[in-house]
Simulated scan of single mutants.
Amino acid sequence: MRKILLALAAIVVALASAAAGWFGVKAWKASQSTEAPVPTPGATVETSGETIPLTFRLSEVEAAGDDLFDPPSCGETWTPESGEANGVLPKVDASLRQVQGVDTVTVVPGYTTSTAGLGFLASEGSIIVTRDDVVVTPDWGGEFVPEYFVAMPDETTLTQNNLEITGALLCDVSAGLNEIWQGFDWSTASEDEIAAKQAEAAAFYSAHEKLPAGTYRVYQWSPIILGEPAAIARVLSEEGITGLAGLQYNAGYTALVDDPEVAAHCTDHVDADGNLLNRSCDVPEDVLADALEREVPVEYIADVPPAVAFSVAAEFTVD
């Protein structure tokens, strides 16, 4: 899913079926941007000068969060209690509106804390949706994609990963959409066959423009990771290196590309005049780990284990 080619393929399917994972699309979009990342501020910490060498490994961070919580399956009854973890509380807003006649739920995830300037690793937006307390979350978007955040008291730090959900994507009906495209071979299909499939998909969307009646609750949950992973993430953020989950593919748009070992795994695509069109990378984790190693102040390290936090539900009713 995190291969750029697979992400591009996911976009093609998404345009036809809107059933692709949001992470692949987001990673692809990020790879097209050449804007420099903005450093994330943190609370000022008096340091002793003592440091230890640390690096960031995405696989280790993901593993630290993967075993903490199994999201409920489609059709399960689920009514969680909200609660913070390691001083962090997820916050989510959900609003229902009409977009060209289609019921569309916009989900805005974020985090807050009672601890000034707390830096942590957490999901960019892991969402669970229920209708009358029965899970109807879209099938995509359940994986833990960690990013470094700094939350402030009485404020909400937004993840910038807003999601849009329509009735056709809810898991209790989306199987019908998947069946339309299941086994369809775009490379060999005729124009008439493609048009027929697109018409079938359009009819499916039309049949699910309205959300079924009920009380909808949208929850955000996430592992909250401090300790050494958050400490190295903070140091990297202070350098302007963000988007840690996508660095394997987006390192070419950061200062890391100045490292010859990283640059060896990137390819520049230029136009006829030699102007850079885009830069594609696929950097092995071990190479990234070497490039990301830094001396980290010991004061940046909070010795607490990862834990899971759940937001208060954002709720709305469809009559």
Results as ranks from 00 to 15, higher is better:
Leu5Thr: 15
Val12Ser: 15
Leu15Gln: 12
Ala16Ser: 07
Ala18Gln: 06
Ala20Ile: 05
Phe23Ser: 13
Gly24Glu: 14
Val25Lys: 10
Ala27Met: 09
Trp28Gly: 01
Pro37Lys: 07
Ala43Ser: 11
Pro72Ile: 14
Gly75Thr: 09
Thr77Pro: 05
Glu81Pro: 12
Glu84Phe: 03
Gly87Thr: 00
Ala94Gln: 13
Ser95Met: 06
Val102Pro: 08
Thr104Gly: 14
Pro109Glu: 11
Gly117Phe: 12
Ser123Glu: 10
Gly125Ser: 11
Val129Phe: 09
Val136His: 02
Thr137Gln: 03
Phe144Val: 01
Tyr148Met: 05
Phe149Ile: 02
Glu155Ser: 12
Leu163Met: 07
Gly167Ser: 15
Ser174Asp: 06
Ala175Gln: 12
Ile180Ala: 09
Phe184Glu: 14
Ala189Tyr: 12
Asp192Arg: 01
Glu193Gln: 05
Phe204Pro: 02
Glu209Trp: 01
Lys210Trp: 03
Tyr216Gly: 08
Tyr216Leu: 02
Trp221Ile: 03
Ile225Val: 15
Leu226Gly: 06
Arg234Cys: 05
Thr242Ala: 03
Gly246Thr: 13
Leu247Gln: 09
Leu247Tyr: 12
Glu261Asp: 14
Cys266Ala: 09
Asp273Trp: 01
Leu276Ser: 08
Asn278Met: 09
Ser280Asp: 11
Asp282Asn: 10
Pro284Ile: 11
Asp286Arg: 05
Ala291Pro: 07
Glu299Thr: 07
Asp303Lys: 04
Thr317Ile: 04
